[in-house]
Write a protein that binds this DNA or RNA. Sequence first.
DNA 1: ATTATCTTTTGATGTGTATCAAAGTACTTT
DNA 2: AAAGTACTTTGATACACATCAAAAGATAAT
Lengths: 220, 220
Amino acid sequence: MPVGFNADEMKRLDEVVEKRRRVKQGELLFNSGDTFTSLYAIRTGFFKTCVTSEDGREQVTGFQMAGEIIGMDGIVSDHHNCNAIALEDAEVCVMPFATIEDLSRELPVLQRHVHKIMSREIVRENSVMMLLGNMRAEERLAAFLLNLVQRLHARGLSQSELVLRMTREEIGSYLGLKLETVSRAFSKFSEDGIIEVKQRYVKIIAPDALKKIFNPQTYF
Amino acid sequence: MPVGFNADEMKRLDEVVEKRRRVKQGELLFNSGDTFTSLYAIRTGFFKTCVTSEDGREQVTGFQMAGEIIGMDGIVSDHHNCNAIALEDAEVCVMPFATIEDLSRELPVLQRHVHKIMSREIVRENSVMMLLGNMRAEERLAAFLLNLVQRLHARGLSQSELVLRMTREEIGSYLGLKLETVSRAFSKFSEDGIIEVKQRYVKIIAPDALKKIFNPQTYF
DNA sequence: ATTATCTTTTGATGTGTATCAAAGTACTTT
DNA sequence: AAAGTACTTTGATACACATCAAAAGATAAT
């Protein structure tokens, strides 16, 4: 759990963690339709969440990494509304939502924290809607890469190098593109000297060029 | 505010409403960047929310009607992250978020309600992502119309007739389409005898046909 | 090590939607 | 009532991305 709590509060916060759970690569943390009981704080590993339409189309709705919270989709109906799948071996803290609610009635700082996490997710999805509704393929991929390295950097990792945990198809699903289009955009960036790609490994050589693609106007 | 509260709780809930505010058609309830203080419960009228990219592209992120809550985008950063614009003369209840938080520490039923509203918004945005990422123009419009009448019907209005409060361009922005494409999809539905359209007035003649377009698989 | 499977890349072609353009319709203002 | 403004419809054309196809490269299984 994050900063902003004092020592005493931290102690109380331990109460919300019922247990830890390991999830192997490819395994489900929860499935759409499962009864909702808990939120999950990712300790290690990497997840994707996705929704599936009745006719089988899959939409990746997000990629989550250490320190992030998943499961909030389940609160409204007491059933999960998406699947959460580990893209690498992972460990999560299981936090029963009833406990979170009980404790956040006593700890305003926790209450505020829960509200912010949910609001952050709403805002994130707003910007994905902007991506999907208004941006072209290369803009989407540029935004995606910038967002990923920014989050990795916030966790002490490089801001220029990363190893993708997901396939081109999963990136495409998230960005509303086909895997071939994602691959072509990677190749284009590589040809233009903006990034270096070797399979899942990506090195960002010219972050400003990526930002310029994502948001052309800023640079004129 | 909604059901699920007893008389005593209802009385307490009045405390969260600081005042009412009228918003005329075309006016802003709040603007991206405004300091966040309150959530708004729509009493009457119809709103759109939208985000704007730095280079001026606009994405409508939702349409909200009586009984729905807007403003949750502001919680995470204490500043609003989208614009809320009245599409017809409206009245809202201003509910200072600090008061909501105070009271929801005392009333578990209110606490739960707030969580559900935010979770519902997350789930709604998930399904918009599915629309934008996977569906074709006519599927998007079919889903949009079905969702609108369903919500209107839940408010005691007709489940087959509606008057759109937004332009083709605003529908298009929400659905990731250009206004001409929206117009053509309306015309197509009309030619096929699925709906009757006259400008903003829409009558749904064959709801099953719309559902079939939205989700072809279900009918085989 | 060898085979099988999965993932990625690249090319050729097709298509759904965007763009450009213009006319028609409704609404607002004076 | 007339003129101006905003919105909608429809047609012609363009283009970005999808689709189809095949090969190359990685990863996993035996």
